[in-house]
Design a protein around this nucleic acid. Structure first.
Length: 578
DNA sequence: TTAGGGTTAG
């Protein structure tokens, strides 16, 4: 014998379309139960959050409730938090604070989720203080949600503090902080936490591993990455497609394109679109353009449809390998296949045209863009103008950059280099003055190198390393040897108001050179030296490292912001294009 | 009754 309520619940469980939801609502109204029974709240929730529901219709149901309960509000807020308009969830939460039905821990949880999606730190802090007032703070799930908002919004100090203060943590709590640190600016701390977790005999799961791998990728730490890989194999997590994708990305970004290929080709699970995208991007990063285009063709044969990321990766591969006509064709086929190019795709197109010396066409692309151009497009054009010595177009690009409010050091240096290449020294001087007057933003360059599992970091002109004297004397030795090979410092890469000799000094001690010198003195002969730089590699360093690879017969790999440079026997895998 | 953590570009 069923009670009427149990009967309603059974019926509700069978709802699988908006039509069913409407029929159910009509039943409730007919039976006179709509205003009073809990089934109404369940119905509302179903309508607000299930894929076949409708948030708009949920709003309509909600508006017919005479006095909505906290649970009714929760259903709506939960729906809004996962919608395209998460801000509405916060608005709703505020409205709710003014009525008799007070928010509960769940209301806060859903609203915080909305904050996390919007990176709304301020709003999250307000809710945090209310949580303390309401006495909800002991709840692990809620605390973890809160921790997640702080971490995602970049307030890592608060996230860390919250974590330290928590009485009770579970695996999700650790995962949130690890992922937050990894995606924020503290990948090293993420790995420390990962190891601490293992020491405390907690068992990292797939989510933990994804965070740890992301940290390894950023640090370029092959040593750490291999350890995580080992753990993945031990725990048989390599059947998880996301873990495999993260492994591909990690190996590629840590310089080991062969291992990345291994993982890709021997995956035990079904490859996803992301697997293909990651692998194509990995090959692009290493300048293996032809292989990347092969894969692009293979994925279509495998019935996987390329998306905007795939096209970007493939275009990037063409760019980095100098496959200009392939790239232009690819862009065309993208438009034809209905994938709408975004500003990044146009950026690649400008790069391709610029690289081919088709500067006017590149300029036309930017000026006829169906969207607002970003600074990167103009910067690409400016770079191409430098390569081809086109002063007039370089000035136009610079003007555009200034109008867009760009105040980056690199832009000024590029224009100055264009002038310098034409021996227009008065103009070079003007740029220098402009830079002085404008308080130009300069992102400090730094480089990492991993030696025997320890990561060493160098800034330009850094003397903080315990072996700095040996490093500097190695650089002096390098300086002498490369000059004997005909090296002339390209001081146009420096733009300070200093004399030529000082300029040479400024170049000598660039962070990537310090890291390479440290590698030479501390790593066994024959071991490749691998360095990671946060910015693009400097032109002079590129010349110097090519020479070092030849004179010292050493393979040197530099990962910069854009790609890998593999120096061997005096040549670089980028073919001097970057 | 209902909650938290996840891979590619940028």
């Amino acid at each position: 014998m069923h009670t009427p309520m149990a009967f309603l619940d059974t019926l509700l469980n069978k709802c699988a379309s908006l039509g069913h939801i409407k029929q159910f609502q009509a039943q409730l109204v007919t039976l006179g139960l709509f205003q009073f029974c809990t089934s109404r709240t369940k119905l509302l929730e179903l309508c607000a959050i299930s894929p076949f529901g409708s948030l708009d219709y949920a709003g309509e149901i909600f508006s017919r409730i005479e006095s909505p309960t906290t649970n009714d509000w929760n259903a709506i807020i939960r729906g809004l938090a996962q919608s395209n308009e998460p801000r509405e969830a916060i608005t709703c939460y505020r409205t709710m604070s003014q009525i008799p039905q007070k928010p509960d821990a769940l209301t806060c949880s859903f609203t915080l989720k909305a904050c996390a999606r919007m990176l709304a730190l301020l709003e999250a802090k307000q809710i945090h203080s209310q949580l303390i007032r309401f006495g909800f703070q002991a709840d692990v799930l809620l605390q973890t949600t809160l921790l997640d908002v702080y971490a995602k919004s970049g307030d890592l100090d608060n996230a860390q503090q919250l974590f330290d203060e928590m009485q009770l943590r579970d695996i999700a709590t650790w995962n949130v902080l690890i992922a937050g640190l990894a995606q924020g600016s503290r990948p090293y701390d993420a790995l420390v936490l990962f190891h601490q977790m293992r020491r405390e005999r907690l068992r990292p799961n797939e989510v933990t591993v994804l965070g740890a791998l992301s940290a390894c990728s950023q640090l370029g730490s092959l040593h750490e990455g291999k350890m995580v890989h080992l753990y993945v194999q031990e725990e048989q997590m390599d059947t998880n497609v996301q873990v495999c994708n993260a492994l591909i990305d990690m190996f590629a970004k840590c310089g080991s394109i062969d291992k990345a290929c291994d993982v890709f080709y021997t995956m035990r699970c079904q490859k996803s679109l992301v697997s293909w995208n990651t692998m194509i991007m990995a090959l692009a990063l290493h300048g293996h353009g032809a292989h990347a285009l092969d894969l692009f063709a293979c994925m279509r044969d495998a019935g996987v449809h390329p998306d905007a990321v795939t096209y970007l990766a493939a275009l990037c591969a063409c760019n980095h390998s100098g496959l200009v006509s392939d790239g232009l064709q690819l862009f065309q086929s993208m438009v034809e296949s209905g994938v709408r190019p975004n500003v990044k795709h146009y950026g690649s197109l400008v790069d391709l045209l610029g690289r081919a010396g088709r500067l006017e066409e590149a300029y036309q692309v930017i000026t006829s863009l169906p969207m607002v151009p970003d600074v990167v497009l103009w910067q690409s054009l400016l770079g191409a103008c430098k390569t081809y010595g086109n002063v007039e177009l370089a000035e136009r690009a610079s003007r555009a950059l200034v109008e867009m409010g760009s105040n980056s050091c690199g832009d000024f240096v590029l224009l100055s280099n264009v002038y310098a290449s034409q021996a227009r020294w008065t103009d070079v001087g003007k740029i220098r003055d402009a830079m002085k007057n404008r308080d130009v933003k300069k992102i400090p360059g730094f480089s990492f190198i991993e030696v025997e599992g320890v990561i060493h970091k160098f800034l330009n002109g850094d003397k903080n390393h315990s072996k700095w004297r040996e490093i500097y004397s190695k650089l002096d030795e390098i300086g002498l040897r490369i000059k004997a090979h005909g090296y002339v410092p390209e001081t146009c890469f420096v733009l300070h108001d200093i004399g030529e000799e000082d300029k040479e000094q400024a170049l000598y001690y660039h962070s990537e050179k310090l890291a390479v010198a440290f590698g030479l003195i501390s790593m066994r002969c024959g071991t490749p030296i691998q360095v990671i730089k946060n910015l693009r590699i400097c032109g002079d360093c590129h010349v110097v490292i090519k020479l070092i690879s030849k004179i010292y017969d050493r393979e040197i790999i530099v990962r910069d912001r854009a790609r890998f440079h593999r120096f061997k026997e005096g040549f670089c895998s980028c073919g001097d294009y970057w």
